[in-house]
């Protein structure tokens, strides 16, 4: 007489109540008990009674022993597995170490190769970037430079009415009067006495000074906060301090005042008290 599904489930439930939850053990005990129960049911014993008898026959202690046994075996197995793993590790450690060593070496070599490649790539990228920047710069920087020049450095025109030669350039030269090597902070423009000197750019007269030495009679025009021009060795000054001036307006006349031997204009451009080469700024 076969047990039905509900009866088997009931038996399963009883086993689970006894702590038999491991499916492997549960299946085995279940199989055993079903044999016994079915045999008793064939002999006319009721299901519930049959179950009771069979479980008693199996022995309460045996349920516990099976579970304890299982735990012990499990622990032993784990120990064995751990020992085996340890032994294996000890055995293969040198091999592993070698593999790792050589692997690393290889990867290092690879890495070196890779990094070389990377550097190459990077360089390639950089070069292309530079090229880009160049192409960008060539167009853009010119524009920027021009606009900056226009903004920060007022357009400088030739400071004399008419065309006259530059006789001394910006930079180191022998001083014409003191006869030693000095830094020439501007340019000298040779012109006849009385030639009209004009403002090189829009601005305001910052200083008008008449002195025996150095620049002699000279004018300093402030074009903005940091940008000034200087006109030296004049014979006549035709402007006053703080006077607003426009580019090309007459401010004085050529002379030979101060440390000068011939009539000429000493012309300086200063930006934040640093002298610049006027030749580079004069727009002809």
């Amino acid at each position: 007489m076969n047990m039905n599904e509900t009866q088997i489930m009931f038996l399963e439930y009883i086993l689970e109540q006894k702590g038999i939850k491991n499916p492997e053990i549960k299946d085995e005990i279940l199989d055993h008990l079903i044999f016994g129960v079915e045999k008793r049911m064939e002999n006319g014993i009721l299901f519930h009674d049959a179950i009771k008898i069979e479980i008693d026959n199996f022995g309460e202690d045996n349920f516990k022993e099976i579970l304890e046994n299982r735990r012990m075996i499990f622990r032993k197995k784990n120990k064995k597995i751990l020992l085996r793993i340890a032994a294996t590790l000890i055995f293969i450690f040198p091999i592993l170490a070698m593999l790792i060593f050589y692997g690393n070496k290889n990867t290092q070599e690879n890495n070196v190769a890779k990094s070389n490649q990377k550097i190459k790539n990077k360089n390639a990228v950089n070069i292309t970037n530079i090229n880009d920047e160049y192409s960008f710069a060539e167009g853009t920087w010119k524009e920027v430079a021009v606009s900056l020049k226009n903004m920060e450095e007022p357009p400088i025109i030739f400071p004399l009415k008419g065309e006259f030669p530059i006789v001394a350039t910006f930079g180191q030269r022998r001083h014409p009067v003191k006869k030693d090597i000095r830094f020439h902070k501007g340019i000298d423009i040779k012109a006849p006495l009385g030639t009209l000197v004009v403002a090189a750019s829009d601005g305001k007269i910052k200083m008008v000074k008449d002195q025996e030495t150095g620049y002699g009679k000279h004018i300093i025009i402030e074009h903005d906060d940091s940008f000034t021009t200087l006109y030296g060795h004049l014979s006549e000054i035709l402007v006053e301090e703080n006077q607003e001036i426009k580019s090309g307006e007459v401010i004085g006349k050529i002379g030979t005042s101060g440390a000068s031997v011939l009539p000429h204009l000493h012309f300086e451009i200063r930006k934040e008290n640093v002298n610049l080469n006027p030749e580079k700024y004069i727009q002809l």
Partner: peptide, 15 residues
């Protein structure tokens, strides 16, 4: 012998 007594022994032998 109780029927259940077989199993712990079988499991041990298996282990």
């Amino acid at each position: 012998i109780t029927e259940g007594a077989l199993y712990p022994t079988l499991h041990k032998l298996e282990a």
